[in-house]
Design a binder for these strands. Sequence first.
DNA 1: GCTTTATATAACATATTTTTTATATAACTG
DNA 2: CAGTTATATAAAAAATATGTTATATAAAGC
Lengths: 112, 112
Amino acid sequence: MKLDAAFSALADPTRRAILARLAQGEATVMELAKPFEMTQPAVSRHLKVLETAGLIIRRVDGTKRPCRLAPGAIAEIDQWLNMLREALARNYDRLDGVLAAMQHDWEGKERS
Amino acid sequence: MKLDAAFSALADPTRRAILARLAQGEATVMELAKPFEMTQPAVSRHLKVLETAGLIIRRVDGTKRPCRLAPGAIAEIDQWLNMLREALARNYDRLDGVLAAMQHDWEGKERS
DNA sequence: GCTTTATATAACATATTTTTTATATAACTG
DNA sequence: CAGTTATATAAAAAATATGTTATATAAAGC
């Protein structure tokens, strides 16, 4: 299941930063690595994770491997999240949210 | 950063299944555990992960702890994903996708 | 009050992830 | 061709995640 890989890839802040950078356009591995206090191999691995998850694609340009966002990147993720969105919307329509706020035996935090 | 916890929580299939179940309404720990070939403590831990990530909330009902989807569950996630959505839409508008498909030096898979 | 039910926590084993250093490869440069 | 540049891969250490069994807690039922 690709959802595992996709969500897992997004769970890492470095990888999200890489995606945010790619949102502005293509970039090579070195360009992507520069902002991070991390070695190049580490970034290479993050890119592999993103590629395997279907979030980015890479092309070959001489000795460089420019990366971009994969066109269908978040399609599957979005589809799954829609299920939750709809459920949350339904709950809201039923005013479950309001009721929950009123009956204060709901805990927003943890009790220990 | 809560995004880490949220995406990380969603990366596990058991936890996504739990959320899918909760999308149909409140459920107790035992009810949630039943479909899985997993011990109750394992499910308890998954629920804690989901709660910490802000994806579910729990109330106290006697000895039971019924769970629901947290109202704002995917708000932060959605906000972040919007950045990507917009970038992808921009790329599409510029026909970057089409161009990429034409210049076949783009690899959809991996080369080894 | 004692037993059962619902859930949590602890201790621990195993698996996975993340990062590092060292090295390989392959394409440019002069 | 020799050296440099861009990137990948391997090996290994450290951190984290996931599941198990055993046990604790607290409310419910008799």
